[in-house]
Design a protein around this nucleic acid. Structure first.
Lengths: 335, 335
DNA sequence: TTTGTCTGGACAAAAGTGGGACAACATTGC
DNA sequence: GCAATGTTGTCCCACTTTTGTCCAGACAAA
């Protein structure tokens, strides 16, 4: 039974080119070579033409060293360490980081509680009050009520959207606790998700892949879009948040989607966004339009223009574009 | 489970001209020919006049190779690979790319493994098939149907749990793409979330805070617990995934919860877990029991014992503990 | 006739290699 | 506080290997 030894061991077979190592570790090719030259951080095997060939073990080492550096360690110190020592160092550092948290604060409601919600601002305020008082039942009730008063698209644009913004802003300012935000987000996830099933399904709807790119962990924007487009006779293929470009492309192909929509909110300047969008655009059939929305889209105007993506300025704009696309599709099919 | 292998087989009938292949894969015509000449990447059949005729299989190969190249692989390395090997390589790469935050949702409850009757195994297989073919409507239908046949607690334990495990495993093995897993996870999030609203609400239920600790991003285990306990007359205060210890404590205090339940699955050895659990236990009223479950709980036995946490070995065990707690509470209140 | 594909080869761009330079920054010694 | 020294990421060069594009002339398809 060699299991105990072998389980945790990492493959030391050399097979990965330097470019792949750079992709996986987030280091640059130059840097990997420089580290090797100076400190022998890793000593990769070579191909018969002197190309470096790295093992999984090497990659893990580099990854850990990078994290150690981010935690403030010096390269000279960590370079000669064994994998185990590196793991220890890294986990010790992150343990320390986790310890510094924000202090608890006294809770005091900062919104009044408008019982009769006349206009949308009142509706949002009432919901914020319910969130702050952790009154889940009331929150659900308000969400349901609002939906009765307005059609879904208007409701999403005038109530849910502003509500999300207020929640984010209030949490940032400390008016809401993270716990409140979490509870509200979880409820909204359930609520908006359930909306999609209200529409009947005929099987002939055009499909649209909806998700967020790698690094974007907030899914509510995308989920709102899924709910919205299902009203207009699209069938959303909803993938949740954080989907790699390759997977989005493959999904669009397999499902035969006619469009792709991405939502980006936070972090707005994630360096992976340009790469991912470019990759997706290049892998996707040119006839399939890509829509990008969300607050972070504004930070990538140039890229969006260069890649020829569509970036509607509002949910309504998105609806209109999709309606046109759908109708154009119908004409094509019948012609 | 031969189904999963067979349905993914690809047509090898040669019929596509090179131009179409170029359009579909995003490669140029010249490049496809060059790859063939130099590395025999694909060896298409020929028409009677020597025109190349590609099969769907060839196209898939070329598509995968293109993606592998974008991931940093060298053409020489990937050219001789089989389709399966290519799939492995590509899915491995996109999993470990600098993205590296989204390893397959491997939900392996430490607390279940009943003998799986053929009935439920069939149900799971049917769902897996729907997922693989991206038949969302069918998947929803199957989820709903299953719920009619069994009571919710049994359904969660015998169908949903095993399904999650199979999805995780299949994705790891490359039988499912990450996109499939994402779609399935998103649907399950919606489905399980909606279950909580089936129960009527009297306002007198004891509350239980349910979430996952910092670093644990997979929420389905926690959400299942929320659905489960609402059947037994608890009101879940559900916070979604990744909640810091301080926030959980504050939430328990504000809502007046009688218990806290945490789900931990991946990563099992996150160094933040001990810190967070210790912190939470110390901030929480000693009279409030903490339940921890999920596959990662097994990695922290010693800690769980030291802190005096409860770690039921099955969903049923959790139910029983909570029922006792609830009834004890009633006696206390009426006394 | 016009357009597209085929073969084989030529050529050029991209990417990798070893070596070194250099600026920004941190640390040390005084 | 300041200068000297050490650390580290980035860039440049000359050269090799790998990979993408282009061309010419023959033939096939529309």
């Amino acid at each position: 039974m060699a299991t105990l030894e072998t389980i945790s061991s990492i493959d030391t077979a050399p097979r990965h080119p330097i470019r792949l190592v750079a992709n996986r570790t987030g280091l640059t090719v130059d840097l990997i070579r420089a580290w090797e030259k100076r400190y022998h951080v890793v000593e990769p095997a070579r191909s018969d033409t002197k190309r470096r060939l790295y093992s999984d073990y090497d990659i893990e080492r580099l990854r850990l060293i990078r994290i150690a550096k981010q935690n403030g360690r010096r390269l000279v110190d960590v370079a000669p360490m064994s994998l185990e020592a590196l793991r220890d160092v890294v986990s010790e550092d992150s343990r320390f980081d986790a310890a510094q948290d924000n202090p608890a604060e006294v809770y005091r409601p900062s919104w009044s509680n408008p019982l009769e919600s006349t206009d949308t601002q009142d509706a949002v305020d009432a919901m914020l009050f319910a969130i702050q008082t952790m009154d889940q039942h009331r929150f659900d009730q308000l969400l349901q009520e609002g939906l009765v008063k307005q059609a879904l698209p208007a409701y999403l644009e005038t109530v849910i959207g502003p509500l999300l913004r207020e929640i984010g802003e209030s949490t940032r300012l400390g008016k809401l606790r993270i716990a409140h935000e979490h509870m509200a987000t979880a409820h909204l996830r359930t609520f908006i998700g359930a909306l999609r099933f209200r529409e009947t399904f005929t099987g002939s709807e055009p499909k649209i892949v909806i998700t967020t790119p790698t690094g974007q962990l907030h899914e509510l924007g995308a989920l709102m879009i899924a709910a919205l487009v299902s009203v207009d006779g699209w069938l959303p293929v909803y993938l949740g948040p954080n989907t790699p470009a390759d997977e989005i492309a493959a999904c669009a192909m397999q499902s035969g989607a006619r469009a792709v929509s991405l939502s980006m909110t936070y972090p707005a300047d994630d360096p992976r966004i340009p790469t991912e969008l470019t990759r997706l655009r290049s892998q996707l059939d040119q006839k399939i339009p890509m829509f990008v929305g969300g607050s972070a889209a504004a930070h990538h105007q140039e890229l969006i223009g260069r890649l020829g993506l569509q970036s509607p300025s509002s949910l309504n704009g998105l609806r209109q574009s999709l309606n046109e696309l759908r109708d154009r599709g119908f004409r094509l099919q019948s012609a």
